[in-house]
Design a binder for these strands. Structure first.
Lengths: 193, 193
DNA sequence: TTTATAACTAAGCAATCGCTTAGTAATGGG
DNA sequence: CCCATTACTAAGCGATTGCTTAGTTATAAA
């Protein structure tokens, strides 16, 4: 690329850093209940900068989803590299509880929260992004299930569906239920796999 | 009571009927994404009437929760009167899928949707109402679990927690997943009991 | 130092939010 | 019929929404 003329002022903020902060806000409050005014406060930059960097509130959110996935990689990686079948999946359920725990709150899963909030009305780009995310996790479950050679293909498929839905349940339940209830849930959910 | 002076015009709408319509709107769109303008269109009355009958948007919603509970009684009653333990609970899971199915959409559970959407920010009166609802359902599960004399108290408690959380999961999953995935979920979930 | 360029500030845009209110229409008791 | 009473219509309230834009400041190349 040619430099047409001159360089000028550079951005006084790091886009990755401010997205990280925005993500926290969306995570706690949901999409609609997070206003652009709240975003500029949390991100520490004003609306001009937000719109110049990310185009729209939607644009900010999409970047937040990317950042969320990257953040989640900390626990999905463990699952991905695990070689112990169902045990590894169960560990992932517990890892998620730690992951979603806030200082003083229960935030659940940003992706699940958003699907539940926006449903069919949501921006289609966001919605596909979210569905892909779910399928990726389900694929990881299927991978681990296949490590048990006793399970035939139909069983793997059925149990992957089961675990995917259970994970959705955990995301929601983690926002509402007590630690004991959540442990009862996970322990019972894995008794017969 | 004494009649002070005179009678006048009577309301041109039935409050129960218009609440039924409002409930459908909240159910499909959530709380924040349902505006008072949308409500007046759907309910067929204008804002003055809405506020004169129900006081506020919150007031409309609270009536909708009552109406929702009454509507749900159709399936909770079956569970309540059942005498077949876990089988009855499983039937309730399937009954809920039918109940939550819209003409062309998946609405999930109005109560669960709202808890997930509003979380801690929600009106406290609404939130207590919603928590009570969850505990009532969990109590019904525990009742049916006790019908199996092989289960001791600790097991009943643990499995009731499990089923409660699973029901939350089903509410969310029913909005997103396919019929096959939901059946895999329910069928596998009940092998754990 | 000059100057083109881009990042900033802050005010303001139309649209919509939940809610209110002034004025009018309907109705039943006196 | 008269008229107090209540239900209605429709306009409008201030606040907030996502987003834009005019004007200013900082910066690096010339």
């Amino acid at each position: 690329m040619y430099r047409i003329y001159k360089m000028a002022r550079s951005k006084q903020y790091n886009e990755e850093e401010v997205i990280e902060k925005a993500m926290g806000l969306f995570w706690r409050n949901g999409y609609e209940n997070t206003s652009v005014r709240m975003l500029e406060k949390e991100m520490g930059i004003n609306q001009f900068s937000i719109y110049s960097s990310f185009g729209s509130k939607n644009g900010v959110f999409l970047e937040c989803i990317k950042s969320y996935k990257k953040k989640m990689h900390r626990i999905t990686e463990i699952l991905e590299k695990s070689n112990n079948g169902v045990i590894g999946i169960k560990q992932y359920f517990y890892d998620f509880l730690e992951f979603s725990k806030d200082d003083n709150g229960k935030k659940g899963c940003l992706v699940t929260n958003t699907v539940n909030e926006l449903g069919a009305h949501g921006d289609p780009i966001i919605m596909t992004e979210l569905k892909n995310f779910f399928n990726e996790i389900k694929a990881l479950f299927a991978n681990n299930l296949r490590q048990d050679k006793n399970k035939d293909l139909a069983t793997v498929e059925k149990q992957a569906n089961y675990l995917g839905a259970s994970m959705l349940g955990l995301s929601l339940a983690s926002k509402i239920l007590s630690r004991k209830q959540l442990e009862d849930y996970i322990e019972t959910a894995f008794t017969n796999l």
